[in-house]
Design a protein around this nucleic acid. Structure first.
Lengths: 151, 151
DNA sequence: AGGTAAATCATACTTTAGTATGAGGGCCAG
DNA sequence: CTGGCCCTCATACTAAAGTATGATTTACCT
């Protein structure tokens, strides 16, 4: 939480500094106003994207709630067994990590993809290995596939 | 797809209009520059957030559309492509190791199963990773499955 | 016989994975 | 409002995995 406050403070300071610089530039007419506004627009566009990606959980929740609205009576050959996931006690986040592992990503890559730290991924992975009764991620993937928990 | 183009066009137009309005306002000094920049920053911050959240939904849509398209192939779903194995230059022994890796075994376990030393398995694995253009055994398994080289 | 590819093994490293432990914040039901 | 679950992160290890290099043996082809 401190990190958030500190980061927020730094961002505010930088914004104010940039704002003042922009103001001076505009008044002195050294830089066209379009460039200034465009620059700020770009910066905050990126900032918005970054902010939106952090709470990835909420987006996923929306997806998860939206999917049950599509009941598929004909059981496909590669249908995943959602009950099994619950039985195994695999949480949403853990399941996401499991899927990324199955795609062959490393912990660092998964961390970057899910916008969390590597240690978080390690924790999830460790829990997954316990819940799937596996000793390695490759075994976890094999077991999960057999249990129809992933495709 | 048209929607995307149309939306993009509208957004561009609106941006230009707003930019001109801002320019005039600044020149006439009717609105402080801080407010202008702040407004643009806010707009694009929100835009960034919206952009970042969209892809999550599209994935679901794509999946939903992908499922009905599946029941077409007359070929067995789990047929392995032997030609591909040759193309990749994977030798007999390497293929055996690949299969064991896919089952989730460790190098030591594979070595015991195939009655060779661990270093031999490491050599085979290393060669496999090159031939499958993978960085990890999990990625090798994922790639091999995709290429229908293993089940 | 000589060249080649495969398979085997080893040694020495570097890099990932995985374990253990502790800790803080968010959320929700009781 | 408290306990439990989830998610997050960090640190410090231990254990695997993967790389690089070199060497030996075998089988096969020309």
């Amino acid at each position: 939480m401190r990190n958030i406050v500190i980061t927020f403070g730094i961002v505010c300071l930088c914004s104010l500094v940039l704002l003042q610089m922009a103001k001076v530039a505009v008044i002195k007419n050294t830089v066209p106003i379009e460039i200034i506004i465009g620059g700020f627009a770009g910066i905050f566009l990126v900032a918005g994207i970054l902010i939106a990606r952090r709470p990835a959980q909420r987006v996923v929740v929306v997806e998860a709630k939206a999917e049950p609205a599509v009941p598929a009576p004909p059981v496909a050959a590669d249908a995943i067994d959602r009950r099994k996931i619950e039985e195994l006690g695999i949480s949403k986040r853990e399941y996401e990590v499991l899927c990324e592992i199955a795609l062959g990503l490393s912990n660092v890559e998964i961390a970057e993809k899910l916008f969390v730290s590597e240690s978080t991924i390690k924790t999830h992975t460790s829990n997954l290995l316990m819940k799937l009764d596996a000793k390695r991620r490759t075994e976890a993937v094999a077991t999960a596939r057999e249990l129809r928990v992933i495709n």
